[in-house]
Structures are given as structure tokens and as C-alpha cells.
């Protein structure tokens, strides 16, 4: 089973893939409306907002967790080298 290179989500069903395209390596949540993958900054911002919404953390703490999440993922590794 593929996992999304940008967020790590397992992609099992066709609806999990960006633009319902199983050849894509990233998921529906990490794509833009046109099917392209979100940029590093876009993903960091959306993850940070999500952490604030779900856990109520301070913005800088949430941003640090978002970066720690992204650090381990193939799509973003080069941004941390």
C-alpha cells in the first residue's frame, strides 16, 4: 500500500489519491484543486492551522510540530538538509 509522500497517510482507496489518480504519490488532502501537490509553505501553514484547531496550541509551538511532522516525509526532506 502506498503512503502519501507529503503527509504519510496510507492511501488504500482511489478516493484517497490526489485527483482520484492512483499513479500519484500524494493524497487528496495534500493536493491543490487542480490536482498538483501543495508547496512546502502551503502544507506547513495548513498543518499549523490544523494543530491549532485540534489542540489549541500557541502558533509557534504548532508550527514547530508541523515542521517535525514534515521533516520525516520524503516530499519535504530536502527542505531540512
Amino acid at each position: 500500500m502506498k503512503t502519501c509522500i507529503a503527509c504519510g497517510m496510507p492511501m488504500k482507496n482511489i478516493s484517497d489519491f490526489a485527483a482520484n489518480d492512483e499513479s500519484k504519490d500524494y493524497c487528496v488532502h495534500c493536493s491543490r484543486p487542480d490536482g498538483e501537490m501543495q508547496s512546502f509553505e502551503e502544507k506547513k501553514e495548513s498543518l499549523t492551522k490544523f494543530i491549532i484547531k485540534t489542540q489549541g496550541f500557541d502558533e509557534s509551538a504548532a508550527c514547530k510540530i508541523a515542521e517535525d511532522m514534515m521533516r520525516k516525509l520524503p516530499a519535504w526532506k530536502k527542505y531540512f538538509d
Binding site: I51, K53, T54, I65, D68, M69
Partner: peptide, 16 residues
């Protein structure tokens, strides 16, 4: 510490 924060964020994601 950072791994722990990531784990709790995963739980929070499914919870939400």
C-alpha cells in the same frame, strides 16, 4: 518530545 507531540497530533486528527 517532538515525536510525542506528533503522536498526539495524529490522535487529535482522528478525534477531530
Amino acid at each position: 518530545k517532538s515525536i510525542f507531540a506528533v503522536i498526539q497530533s495524529t490522535v487529535a486528527h482522528h478525534f477531530s
